[in-house]
């Protein structure tokens, strides 16, 4: 039985294909302005990686903000349930999932069987999401992948007091104009993101084990800082940005 999970996020579209429950293929492409073509592209790549034909896929579950725009999906499930299921399958001891994606951040409590027990999402504000870091990286003329490494060099991080992304960008520009070292500004930005995530996590209540998913989990500076603040080890799946699609594929497999 072959099932596909499709996660249409604000930045990237991810597909994971499972054959009899085994992960056989995946793909990640930029979402862009046209959700459907990015889904088609990601599916084609994942099918190729899995070495199967698309017609062999019998179940599709769509998730992510663009899930409503996938007419052929057999079921549409929120990313909260999918990240919960995916993270719990990778690390069965998981009771709390911290998912930080492009436009949303969520803290999800799951029970012993991986079902969502409670959750919290960020408000309308982009602070505490991948988008915040992206905007700041652009202002600092640095790539997202370089950010974590540069933040690690900081000795004296600045305080970013604005939670609004636009105002925080102005704050960054003003720090640059003052001649402050880039690494201190970048570290300050990381701490601002961690502040938001930590606040949500504490609001909901943390129960170990904690697993982090979503694209921002690739940023080691964020994970390290969050881990220190929460005083616990954060588990990281091999491809954290694919965990939503993996969870969707697992749900597709189970419902077939």
């Amino acid at each position: 039985m072959i099932a596909a999970g499709i996660d249409v996020g604000s930045n990237t579209t991810k597909v994971v294909i499972l054959k009899n429950g085994e992960w056989v293929g995946d793909a990640l492409v930029l979402t862009g302005a046209d959700n459907r073509s990015s889904v088609e592209k990601a599916l084609a790549q994942a099918v190729k990686a899995a070495g199967i034909k698309q017609t062999e896929i019998t179940q599709y579950v769509a998730t992510g903000y663009g899930r409503i725009n996938i007419p052929f999906a057999d079921r549409k499930v929120t990313e909260i349930s999918c990240h919960g299921r995916g993270a719990h399958t990778v690390f069965p001891g998981t009771r709390t999932v911290i998912d930080v994606g492009g436009q949303d951040s969520k803290v999800i409590r799951v029970d012993a069987s991986g079902r969502v027990a409670d959750f919290i999402m960020n408000d309308k504000c982009a602070a505490g999401t991948g988008r915040f870091l992206e905007v700041m990286a652009r202002a600092l003329e640095i790539t997202l992948t370089e950010m974590a490494a540069v933040a690690g060099k900081s000795k004296n991080p600045v305080t970013i007091s604005n939670t609004c992304t636009v105002f925080a960008e102005s704050e960054v520009i003003s720090y640059l104009a003052q001649g402050l070292p880039k690494e201190d500004i970048i570290r300050g930005l990381h701490e601002a993101v961690v502040d938001r995530i930590e606040s949500m996590a504490l609001r909901l209540g943390i129960e170990p084990e904690v697993t982090m998913t979503g694209g921002v989990a690739l940023n080691t500076a964020i994970v390290t800082s969050l881990s220190k603040r929460l005083k616990l080890t954060i588990l990281l799946p091999p491809q954290p940005q694919l965990i939503g699609a993996y969870g969707a594929a697992l749900i597709a497999t189970n419902q077939a």
């Binding site: 903000y65 499930v77 929120t78 909260i80 349930s81 959750f119 999402m121 309308k124």
Partner: peptide, 26 residues
């Protein structure tokens, strides 16, 4: 469920739907 009774400019369809759906999935 955060929202606004009167000001539709504060209605975030996607986010509101995700919260509601997640609650029902729960």
């Amino acid at each position: 469920l955060e929202g606004d009774c009167i000001d539709e400019r504060n209605f975030m369809a996607g986010q509101t739907m995700t919260r509601l759906e997640s609650f029902l999935e729960m």
